[in-house]
Simulated assay, not measured.
Amino acid sequence: MADVKNIRILKVFKALEAHPIIGISNKEIADGLGIPAYKVSRAIWTI
């Protein structure tokens, strides 16, 4: 289960890295990854 969480965190940060200047919202990341927005928020707060 921890591996799935770590993979999700990496995917979120790759999405953020792809938009360094303008940025991207949690909802946009969630939609792109096919996960709920709260999981994006949790991934960001994990670090």
Rank of each mutant, 00 (worst) to 15 (best):
M1A: 15
M1E: 12
A2H: 14
A2F: 09
A2V: 14
A2C: 09
A2S: 10
D3M: 14
D3S: 10
D3T: 15
D3C: 13
V4A: 14
V4Q: 11
V4I: 13
K5M: 07
K5V: 09
N6V: 08
N6C: 03
I7F: 00
I7M: 06
I7R: 09
R8C: 03
R8P: 03
I9A: 05
I9G: 01
L10C: 03
K11H: 00
K11L: 05
K11S: 11
K11G: 01
V12I: 10
V12E: 00
F13H: 13
F13S: 04
F13W: 14
F13V: 07
F13E: 09
K14A: 13
K14T: 06
K14C: 12
A15L: 12
A15G: 01
A15E: 12
L16E: 05
L16K: 12
A18V: 07
A18Q: 12
A18E: 14
H19I: 04
P20V: 10
P20N: 10
I21T: 15
I21D: 15
I22V: 11
I22H: 04
I22T: 09
G23E: 06
G23M: 05
G23T: 09
G23A: 11
G23F: 06
I24Q: 08
S25W: 02
N26V: 05
K27M: 02
E28P: 05
E28R: 06
E28N: 11
I29K: 01
I29R: 02
A30Q: 03
A30L: 04
A30Y: 02
A30F: 05
D31Q: 13
G32V: 00
G32K: 04
G32H: 03
L33F: 00
L33P: 02
L33Q: 00
G34F: 00
G34V: 01
G34W: 07
I35H: 02
I35D: 04
P36C: 08
P36R: 06
P36D: 11
A37F: 00
A37W: 01
K39H: 06
V40D: 08
V40W: 00
V40F: 03
S41Q: 10
R42G: 02
A43Q: 10
A43G: 10
A43C: 12
A43H: 11
A43T: 12
I44G: 06
I44A: 05
I44V: 15
I44Y: 04
I44P: 08
W45C: 13
T46F: 11
T46Y: 15
T46G: 00
I47P: 01
I47Q: 09
